[in-house]
């Protein structure tokens, strides 16, 4: 494997593989025959901590759009809804990862692909562009995470700035 790029999350390095592309939602995308495999970037996995729960709400064969909710993941440090990074059709969910979500921590760039998409369409970033995206969004991400851990100011219950109605 070519030398990975490194993004420093504080003092902790996240290794960004250069043999694939990335979506802005911190998933990597790699063609595999007729489909694209999708997995978590090292940055995402570091934020989650030790992953122990993964569940999918979408079903194989379903047409999905970028941003569609697909499932839920829980790690030792965080939980998250999971969203589709591209338009396409869900081809398969990786059964090995479903059976043992900790694979996401041990082998995130190979065995622990999450799902595959057929007819995948949508903008992607090169590894260098993804590194730039991480650099640019890190201050915001930190603010968001710190806001959550010290209350809910920037968290899921944040009050809207103005009444949407």
């Amino acid at each position: 494997m070519p030398k990975p790029l490194i993004f420093m999350m504080g003092r902790s390095p996240a290794f960004i593989a250069t043999d694939r592309q990335y979506a802005r939602n911190h998933m990597w995308v790699q063609p595999d025959g007729a489909v694209c495999r999708v997995g978590f970037s090292a940055y995402a996995v570091k934020l989650l901590g030790d992953v122990h729960h993964l569940a999918w709400s979408a079903a194989p064969g379903r047409a999905v759009r970028s941003g569609d909710p697909m499932g839920f993941i829980e790690g030792s440090k965080a939980t998250s809804d999971l969203y589709c990074p591209m338009d396409g059709e869900v081809a398969e969910f990786n059964p090995r990862v479903l059976a043992d979500p900790s694979l996401i921590n041990s082998n995130l760039y190979d065995d622990a692909w999450l799902f595959s998409l057929a007819d995948a369409r949508g903008p992607l970033l090169s590894s260098e562009q993804y590194l730039d995206h991480l650099e640019a969004s890190w201050p915001l991400a930190q603010r968001l995470l710190k806001g959550q851990s010290s209350g809910r100011d920037a968290g899921a219950g944040g009050k809207p700035a103005s009444d949407p109605a």
Binding site: H26, T79, S80, Y83, Q148, G151, A161
Partner: peptide
């Protein structure tokens, strides 16, 4: 409780802020 939730990364993993997520849902 709302005060000691684990970090919710949904806004990062959807590349948007929490209000946008709720709006999008």
């Amino acid at each position: 409780s709302p005060k000691d939730l684990k970090l919710d990364l949904s806004q990062l993993f959807r590349d948007s802020d929490p209000l946008q997520i709720a709006e999008a849902e």
